[in-house]
């Protein structure tokens, strides 16, 4: 187990290192940010001075090594636009996105898995066909369009929920959260539901497919032959077997929701990371882009590590392989 963890951590460090190189070179290739940053009317001397100040006159490898050295000490540089340390800037936006993504995942899981299990248990029932229709809508209708519809219906027509922004926050363990007040929850409801729809459709289909496969397996038949009540057949024998693909997709989806909730964040003017990165790309705020992408890599690597550890808990056959 410890060996497995160490091995995975070394892999993770290698992935982060390689990604930092790709990201840095990629962003470097986009062009010189000085042209965007300074007044076009500035004279050549000022340009040269600034280029030297930011180190853009250095060759690429030198720039990269400087960046890498700084990164290892936790310094991702300063945002050109906000004049703030990039790490602080991103971390100040992280709780809002984390809150939104987590809420969306909770909604998708709590609704999607039971619905999918039902649809797989009774594949021919009318209710199951309705559920499957819902799931097709869930991941084929564009998120932004559903978002706009939600705002029109619930914020404008009915006036039940606010159309955007984040509610008041409280600081809990040093993190700003808004889910502990009605006001905060009412702000969260629409964007979280909007973001959950795609995942909801996906989880319904996964749970259903797994259910249909496992229900026809010999061990389910054997469990029935032992006279186990259906509730136990599903709860004890089936649930654990269908959870591996669900956990995989859950992890991937959670990662991509954190990193790319930008459409929903934009529509609902949610002050999260997605908006920050889009704004930064618009003005070629290089330090923010690089730091953000590396943060995304770290998030994905971490989530995948957790998913792998959960696999071991779910399937003993994977556990033995990991330990050996």
């Amino acid at each position: 187990m410890i060996g497995f963890l160490i091995q995975r951590l070394l892999q993770a460090i290698a992935v982060v290192f390689v990604m930092s190189l790709i990201v840095f070179v990629g962003v470097y290739a986009i062009g010189n940010p000085i042209d965007v940053l300074i007044d076009p009317a500035a004279d050549q001397a000022l340009r040269e001075a600034l280029i030297r100040q930011y180190g853009f006159d250095q060759p690429l490898p030198v720039q990269y090594l400087t960046f890498l050295g700084n990164m290892l000490t936790g310094d991702f540089g300063q945002s050109f636009v906000y004049r703030l340390p990039v790490l602080d800037l991103i971390l100040s936006r992280l709780p809002a996105t984390l809150e939104l993504a987590l809420s969306a995942m909770v909604i998708a899981t709590v609704l999607g898995i039971p619905l999918g299990i039902w649809a797989g248990y009774k594949p021919d029932a009318v209710s199951s066909k309705l559920i499957m229709g819902l799931s097709v809508l869930g991941f084929s209708v564009p998120t932004f369009w559903v978002g706009l519809l939600l705002i029109m219906l619930f914020a404008i027509e009915l006036g039940w929920l606010p159309s955007g922004g984040r509610g008041p926050t409280q600081e809990i363990l040093g993190v700003d959260v808004s889910i502990f007040s009605w006001e905060g929850l009412s702000h969260l409801a629409l964007p979280a539901f909007n973001l959950a729809l795609f995942k909801l459709g996906l989880l319904i289909r996964l749970a259903r497919a797994g259910m249909i496969e496992v229900m026809s397996s010999d061990f389910v038949r054997f469990a029935r032959a032992q006279g186990l009540p259906e509730r136990q057949v599903v709860g004890l024998h089936v649930l654990k077997n269908i959870s591996i693909p669900i956990v995989t997709v859950f992890g991937l989806e959670f990662g991509s929701t954190l990193a790319f909730a930008v459409v929903t964040e934009t529509i609902f003017t949610w002050p999260g990371m997605g908006k920050l990165i889009i704004d930064s790309i618009m003005v070629l705020d290089r330090p923010v882009m690089v730091a953000y992408l590396i943060l995304v890599v770290v998030l994905f690597v971490t989530i995948n590590l957790v998913v792998d550890l959960v696999y071991g808990q779910l399937d003993p056959r994977i556990r033995t392989k990991g330990a050996a």
Binding site: S217, D218, F219, R221, F222, A223, R224, A225, Q226, G227, L228, P229, H237, K240, N241, L314, D315, P316, R317
Partner: peptide
């Protein structure tokens, strides 16, 4: 269902498949 397993039971062909792997 109350009879199955209690008074009449069944064993299947493939022992690799009849026990739940997890």
């Amino acid at each position: 269902r109350r009879m199955r397993g209690a008074r009449v039971a069944m064993v299947f062909q493939d022992p690799m498949m009849t026990l739940n792997p997890v």
